[in-house]
C-alpha cells in the first residue's frame, strides 16, 4: 500500500488531518479517566492507534510513518510493560506488596493510588498503541 486508498481526494485528506488530533485527544481522555470510568490504558491505546491508521489510510503509508517512526515505536513497545513492572517494584520498595497501590508514600494512600494507577494505565496505553500500529504497518507492507 504505497499510496492512499483514496487517491488524492482533498476532502478525505483534509478531514482526516483535522479529525486525527481529536481522536488522539479522546484517547488521552479515556486514558486519564481509566481508573474512575469505563476505559483505560488498553482502550486508549487502541483509540490513539486508530488515529494513525486513519492517517495511513487517508494520506498514505509513508506520510503516516513519517509521523510515527520506528525509532520511537521500538522503545515504546517495551517501555510500557517496564513501567508497569517498575511501578510494582516501587510498591515493594515503599513497603507494600507488589502492585499494592494503596500505600502511604509521600502522599496519602488515595492520592498515591490514583497516581500509580494512572501511571500503570499510561504504560499499558503506550505499549498497546505502539504494538497495534506496528502490526498495522507490518501487514500494510512495512
Amino acid at each position: 500500500m504505497s499510496e492512499s486508498l483514496f487517491g488524492e481526494d482533498v476532502i478525505v485528506r483534509t478531514i482526516a488531518r483535522l479529525v486525527a488530533p481529536f481522536i488522539q485527544l479522546f484517547g488521552l481522555y479515556v486514558l486519564m479517566h481509566g481508573h474512575v470510568s469505563p476505559g483505560g490504558g488498553f482502550q486508549a491505546g487502541v483509540i490513539i492507534a486508530s488515529s494513525f491508521i486513519l492517517l495511513a489510510l487517508a494520506l498514505g503509508l509513508p506520510e503516516s510513518k513519517e509521523r510515527f517512526k520506528k525509532t520511537i515505536r521500538l522503545p515504546m513497545e517495551s517501555s510500557g510493560p517496564l513501567i508497569f513492572a517498575l511501578i510494582g517494584v516501587t510498591c515493594i520498595l515503599a513497603g507494600g506488596y507488589y502492585l499494592q497501590y494503596g500505600i502511604a508514600f509521600l502522599f496519602p494512600p488515595a492520592v498515591v493510588s490514583a497516581i500509580l494507577i494512572s501511571a500503570v494505565e499510561i504504560g499499558i496505553g503506550i505499549t498497546v498503541l505502539a504494538m497495534i500500529v506496528t502490526i498495522f504497518y507490518a501487514m500494510a507492507g512495512d
Binding site: 479515556v30 469505563p38 476505559g39 486508530s50 491508521i53 501487514m139
Partner: peptide
C-alpha cells in the same frame, strides 16, 4: 460491562476490520 463494550468497539469494529481489509488487499 461498559469496559468490554468499549474494547469491542475499538478493537473489534475498528482495528480488526482494518487488518482484515489489509489482508484481503494482499
Amino acid at each position: 460491562s461498559p469496559d468490554v463494550g468499549f474494547t469491542e468497539a475499538a478493537v473489534g469494529a475498528g482495528v480488526t476490520t482494518v487488518l482484515f481489509i489489509l489482508t484481503i488487499a494482499r
